[in-house]
């Protein structure tokens, strides 16, 4: 467990910009501004922030779905540019992404078998018998019954679909997983189960997580360190326990104060 899983330096992403046909400057949006952060192997780094603060853009750059405008990324110790040049395969085997809306991230016209089959064939290059065995292992790991494979995504509830999406990310044998609001679309009891599952999987397979969320209590429960994003910048990074008891930045303080709490007395 040495070295960083993710090392990001001065990463920026600008949308729009440039000039149009008549030389007029187009509207430019800086979604991510010079963000630097690192995730150690086996660590969970959470990113919190409001909608529009650039959390998801950052995550999409890390998994190669967007290209950064400037800055450098080292993923699993390798340069992201080099990874991208060696094709989608290399990227997918190093880092994976779990989406916020689990049902939307599964193709409605494919069975779960077909969905899990793709990474096993494309990224791992396994033969049919090995794929079958691996699918059983994966379903067992995310605690889903065996008849899951022949069913379609719409037959599952949100929590079950998120388990399947996690299984798909695990199938690639990537050890770094970016989780983009993985539990915010779920009911509290299901949310607790999925969080528990994520923790178990991390310990079992030695995973590193980048966990994006807007729910501070969830973040505190699962993460080792927390980075707070505000208008495209990381304004504060601290260990979870410290950040919530003693927030430094004004925005973090406001965030902590705004979170609704249960008062039992």
């Amino acid at each position: 467990m040495t070295g960083a899983a993710i090392q990001v330096r001065d990463l920026s992403k600008t949308f729009g910009g440039g000039r149009n046909l008549f030389g007029k400057a187009r509207h430019e949006i800086e979604a991510v501004k010079a963000v630097s952060l690192h995730v150690a192997r086996g660590e969970t780094l959470a990113i919190v922030g409001e909608s529009g603060s650039g959390k998801s853009t950052l995550a999409r750059m890390l998994v190669g779905l967007e290209e950064p405008t400037s800055g450098s990324m080292l993923i699993g110790g390798r340069d992201a540019g080099a990874l991208r040049r060696s094709g989608p395969r290399a990227f997918g085997r190093t880092i994976q992404y779990v989406f916020q809306d689990p049902v939307a991230s599964l193709n409605p016209r494919k069975t779960i078998r077909e969905i899990l089959d793709t990474p096993l064939t494309r990224l791992c290059g396994y033969e049919a018998p090995r794929r079958r065995a691996r699918m059983q292992e994966l379903l067992h790991a995310v605690q889903m019954p065996e008849d899951t494979l022949s069913r379609y995504p719409h037959e599952f509830s949100g929590g079950q679909a998120q388990r399947i999406a996690i299984a798909r990310a695990l199938a690639t044998e990537a050890e770094i997983i970016v989780l983009d609001e993985p539990v915010s679309a779920l009911d509290v009891s299901i949310q607790a189960q999925v969080l528990l599952l994520l923790r178990d999987l991390k310990n079992r397979f030695g995973l590193s997580y980048l966990f994006i969320s807007h729910d501070l209590a969830v973040v505190e429960a699962i993460s080792d360190r927390v980075a707070v994003m505000y208008f495209g910048e990381v304004v504060e990074t601290a260990p979870a326990a410290r950040l919530f008891t003693d927030p430094e930045h004004a925005y973090t303080r406001r965030l902590v104060a705004s979170a609704p709490r249960i008062r039992k007395e």
């Binding site: 949310q191 607790a192 528990l196 969830v218 505190e220 429960a221 699962i222 709490r261």
Partner: peptide, 18 residues
């Protein structure tokens, strides 16, 4: 339902509880 709600200040103990 109440036991499943994560609370600020509980931290990792929350997951042990659930």
């Amino acid at each position: 339902l109440i036991a499943c709600v994560p609370e600020l200040g509980t931290g990792a103990r929350f997951l042990d509880r659930v």
